[in-house]
């Protein structure tokens, strides 16, 4: 490994936890509720503390307490954003780095972010920039076959049999019958979706949330459909709409 390769850029999605009063008892309760919804999602997940609305977090003791609280729920604080000079100084002394506050990003009522960022870390940014990472499959995907599109999308222009497994770090498109399993956003991308021309899947999953066919409403069977994570829930939407309607519902 040359000196030039030693340090490389990487782009990661991180969860942001909004902190008001670090000792607010509601904080722990709310975190516990959130984690209970999808426990695997928060396992050892690095998080950034958004201090925009916080007047506390000015001492090492504040951060130590916060760190312990977050750790109890599986999260690892790695940095702060929107911190005042005083907050930042205390943060640095407990090895939390400063993230530049995402304009608007932290303002949204629900912060959505990413499972398994440690997997995303395997992927250097450069690898994704240049050529297309999309994988195209033109032959039927037979039972027992597994296809993984690492770091990109998977496009299948043939049927996918029951017992076959499609995995992609990005989206999955099937321009045929999808009868096997489809696992999109395998590295934690919650914006990944699954599109199937004829939806008969055994199991679909986005960023670790999954539904088995038993739980799939029958009206979607054999119809064009897409699967998306909306407000942390895996939704099956008919056809090719943008999914906004369901997001409001």
């Amino acid at each position: 490994m040359g000196a030039a390769n030693r340090v490389q850029g990487g782009i990661f999605t991180l969860m942001v936890v909004k902190i008001g009063d670090p000792y607010d008892p509601d904080l722990e309760r709310e975190l516990a509720e959130q984690v209970a919804l999808s426990p695997g999602f928060f396992a050892d997940a690095p998080v950034v503390l958004d201090l925009k609305d916080s007047l506390g977090c000015t001492s090492v003791a504040d951060y130590t307490a916060l760190r312990q609280l977050l750790r109890r729920h599986g999260m690892i604080p790695v940095g702060v954003q929107n911190a005042s000079a005083l907050q930042l100084r205390a943060a640095k002394s407990v090895d939390l780095s400063a993230f530049s506050g995402a304009a608007g990003g932290a303002r949204r009522p629900i912060e959505r972010a990413p499972a398994a960022p440690e997997r995303a870390a395997d992927r250097p940014a450069a690898e994704r920039s240049s050529e297309s990472r999309t994988r195209l499959v033109t032959q039927p995907v037979r039972s027992g076959t597994q296809i993984y599109a690492k770091g990109g999308d998977l496009v299948v222009v043939a049927p996918v049999s029951a017992g076959a497994e499609l995995i992609a770090d990005g989206h999955i498109h099937v321009y045929g019958a999808l009868r096997g399993r489809a696992i999109a956003g395998a590295a934690g991308d919650i914006t990944a979706r699954i599109f199937a021309h004829r939806f008969e899947a055994e199991l679909v999953s986005v960023a670790g949330r999954y539904i088995v066919s038993d739980a799939i409403p029958p009206e979607h069977r054999s119809q064009p459909a897409q699967v998306a994570l909306i407000d942390d829930r895996l939704c099956i939407l008919p056809g090719w709409g943008n999914g906004r309607g369901a997001a409001e519902g």
Partner: peptide, 13 residues
């Protein structure tokens, strides 16, 4: 049918 599907996949691979 499913077993046949598996065998077809094996033939191709």
């Amino acid at each position: 049918v499913r077993d046949s599907d598996r065998i077809i996949g094996i033939l191709a691979a």
